[in-house]
Write a protein that binds this DNA or RNA. Structure first.
Lengths: 253, 253
DNA sequence: CGATCGGTTGAGAGAGATCAACGCAGGTGG
DNA sequence: CCACCTGCGTTGATCTCTCTCAACCGATCG
């Protein structure tokens, strides 16, 4: 994943609709040539089905801070992330925020094919996605049980991730939370073939805090502590995992 | 739902296998007459499909404290709860526990059709379930996309529940957690047609604590406080929701 | 009758929150 | 080019909510 500090030109607008027209036309080579497919739900599909999928898909691009959809919005599309990272968050009426998670390359957004979204999705980096019209996608799903099976598998995986995260939120100390977060992110990057020792952190400290049920100060302190303990090295835009073993020990998973 | 304080005779053994032989044979009238079906995934099925479902199902019964399956066990069956309540929990290597949730009447356990379970399921009350052999059930699912669709829908619902719970664990105070827990339970009971003002609490305080990321003492104190504030009335085996409005206010959802 | 179990209550301690100051980088405007 | 501002992150001092430890109560049971 390429994480640039920020897009040079400011966002053209926050309405993704203005962006839904293909900037580059359909991605070169289409789904068949797409290297994200291997790690995504699309892997369930074969030649002819892929063509159908491609027919209902558009490539869209978001600048950092641009909102893909808001909590409660009607879900008239579902998405597959092909580049960059999104933040998925929920707001409590009184303004408290929880970051449910981050959608990375290969992640499918709208897995459950819901009527309405339950989270807000915002780009953290420049993001590229395949946008599938929900109605058309649902029709495809009806025809291809294979695809539904794959979606369901993925939903099951998300469910276990959610369980892990609940355990983390409810029963772990601040240091364990931060260590586990870093390891979890590494595992997810590894799953999509990114195995660098340097972990890019496309999200800001506040996002991490809201994800782990901590304050920004505590996250900062714990990262500093891990750095002092030589488990990690804080670098611009991320951290270098100097001693993953130590980190695993601290994460107590 | 009938919640008795405890089964008079102690559990015959913790191995559910000893119980898997039908005690009462197939439930009288079978799936067609089953009144849990309406609120469960089985609602997706019609006449002939129901017969196939019934053919791969066995009714099994658990005594309180009996374990249905353990974390990491091979999932050779999936289940539908028809009576009673189960606790779904996860253990951290160091013994800390998190209660992921509670399976009530109509809940499907093993929604994701996983190879292995990720949680331990234990009966809190006398429990009755439909046990479906996983292989046979999976085969049925392959044949009836309808059913898979329904499973997937339900998984989506579970996912939003998990999101709600993450928000609760990460960003709410002890009092809010307890209030929200009671309201959430009421909502789930309502979903299956139980609308009594008195909320049965089949789980013990420790279970609630481990579910909410609190200690047993804090749960007890918060319940006492809610009682003193006249929002609830603590009664044997549960609580009476005296002032749900007040509770909603306190839950801040 | 003592033992055990689940729940409640109190006193004190501690992990993390809160409040506040500061540093640094990037952008902006004179 | 410099002064200023803003956003993000870090660090320190203090506070507070929840945990920990401990005692106690009532019910159940052998």
């Amino acid at each position: 994943m390429t994480v640039r500090p920020a897009s040079p030109e400011p966002s053209a607008g926050t309405d993704p609709a203005t962006n839904q027209a293909c900037r580059h036309g359909r991605s070169e080579g289409g789904c068949v040539a797409c290297d994200v497919r291997r790690v995504s739900v699309c892997a369930a599909l074969t030649g002819q089905e892929l063509e159908r999928l491609e027919a209902v898909s558009h490539r869209i691009v978001l600048d950092p801070r641009q909102i893909l959809f808001g909590q409660e919005d009607r879900a008239d599309a579902v998405y597959n992330v092909t580049e960059g990272a999104l933040r998925l968050s929920r707001l409590l009426p009184d303004g408290r925020r929880h970051v449910i998670g981050f959608a990375l390359i290969g992640d499918f957004v709208g897995l459950a094919l819901p009527e309405r979204f339950t989270v807000t999705a915002e780009a953290l980096t420049p993001v590229a996605l395949c946008r599938f019209d929900r109605r058309a996608f649902t029709a495809l799903v009806e025809d291809v049980p294979h695809l539904l099976r794959r979606l369901h598998e993925r939903a099951g995986y998300e469910l276990t991730l959610a369980q892990d995260h609940m355990m983390l939120l409810g029963r772990r100390t601040a240091e364990e939370k931060v260590a586990a977060f870093l390891l979890g992110l590494r595992a997810r990057y590894a799953r999509i073939g990114l195995t660098s020792v340097t972990l890019e952190l496309p999200m800001c400290r506040q996002d991490i805090a809201d994800h782990l049920g901590l304050t920004i100060e505590t996250v900062s302190r714990m990262l500093t502590r891990l750095d002092r303990e030589r488990a990690i090295l804080i670098v611009p835009g991320g951290v270098r995992l100097v001693d993953p073993g130590r980190l695993e020990q601290l994460a107590a998973s």
